[in-house]
């Protein structure tokens, strides 16, 4: 019996299996490298696996490489992004996105010069976490790429850098991108605009044709406390999607403008209880005595959550001098 590290890897044994003519055996050997991340010699074997003739072996190598660090690892993963086999490509992209090593930035940036949209999107995704300033210019360029996935990741890189100078570009994406998912991400990225510089784009997004973009805009406006957006939010309380109205109600609460009391009070009689609950909470945040008649009715709501929040809201109003 062996009472220590009973599945610790024996690198010599792995090395030997890696030279087997049988692809299955090589594949299992690569998988076993996961038990050897503390062994400096293991990296080389994992990297070698990326150029194996068998796609299964390459896929396992791409997976296990996220355990290792260094130039060779990044280079191997980048090259695997163009592998003939899709599983290998996807695994490589996933492992690449795990890297936290900022010195990998330049190597990844080089690969953004290729034409392949998958490679570009994967590289941008990996760059996002690294937050290296050099990626800003490249990301800006890619906001105009034909593929939505690439544009989406480019926004990610820019938003993680939180540089006010690119706000215009992000606003543009939020407003004009032809793809609704990209517009939604664009709207979400504006959350770092602590001034009202992004106001136009956010308000415009409240009228987007896609409800999820409108929902995101209604939410972000509250998060950045965009005081100038109260009337558009009040208008959004008539949105055909209750989900948008819920977020608008929440944001009106954050903005604490008594002008919203009526529209929120009316929302207390909508048939979706999630919305009634949010509206009651918003009235509590605003804490205006004008809301009392609405809230007293809400204290008898069929939904206990609405009743509870209404009681809390009344309490807030009574505490408000």
């Amino acid at each position: 019996m062996n009472l220590s590290f009973d599945d610790g890897a024996d690198l010599d044994d792995i090395r030997e299996r890696l030279s087997s003519p049988d692809a299955g055996i090589r594949r299992v050997a690569v998988m076993d490298l996961i038990d050897a991340v503390d062994d400096p010699d293991a990296v080389e074997l994992a990297v070698k696996g990326i150029s194996d003739s068998d796609a299964g072996v390459r896929a396992e190598a791409a997976r296990v490489l996220d355990e290792f660090e260094g130039e060779d690892v990044i280079a191997a993963l980048l090259s695997a992004l163009t592998d003939a086999d899709e599983t290998v490509r996807l695994a490589a992209a996933e492992s690449l996105a795990e890297t936290k090593d900022r010195s990998a930035g330049p190597a990844i940036l080089v690969w953004l010069e290729t034409d392949d949209a998958f490679v570009k999107a994967s590289c941008l995704r990996a760059l996002r976490e690294l937050r290296v300033p050099e990626s800003q210019a490249v990301a800006l360029e890619h906001l105009g790429h034909a593929e939505p996935t690439v544009r989406r990741e480019a926004i990610g890189v820019l938003a993680y850098l939180k540089d006010d100078n690119v706000l215009m570009a992000l606003m543009n994406a939020a407003r004009k991108d032809p793809d609704p998912t990209v517009r939604k991400v664009g709207v979400g990225s504006l959350v770092f605009s602590k001034t009202d510089r992004a106001a136009d784009a956010l308000v415009e997004a409240l009228g987007d044709e896609n409800w999820q973009v409108r929902e995101e805009a209604a939410f972000i406006i509250g998060k950045v406390a965009l005081g100038s957006a109260v009337s558009p939010l009040i208008e959004a309380m008539n949105d055909e999607y209750w989900q948008v109205r819920v977020k608008a109600a929440g944001s009106l609460g954050r903005l604490k403008d008594p002008a919203a009391v009526d529209v929120l009070g009316q929302a207390l009689s909508y048939n979706i209880s999630n919305l009634r609950k949010e509206a009651a909470a918003a009235l509590g945040e605003i804490a205006s005595p004008n809301a009392l008649p609405f809230l007293q009715v809400a204290c008898e709501d069929v939904d206990p959550d609405v009743r509870k929040i209404a009681r809390w809201a009344i309490d807030q109003i009574s505490k408000n001098p």
Binding site: R128, A159, Y160, K162, V185, S189, F192, W312
Partner: peptide, 14 residues
């Protein structure tokens, strides 16, 4: 996380 990489904490009311 939100789009800028900050934790996306969800509030449970009050």
């Amino acid at each position: 996380k939100d789009e800028t990489g900050d934790f996306n904490v969800k509030k449970v009311h009050h």
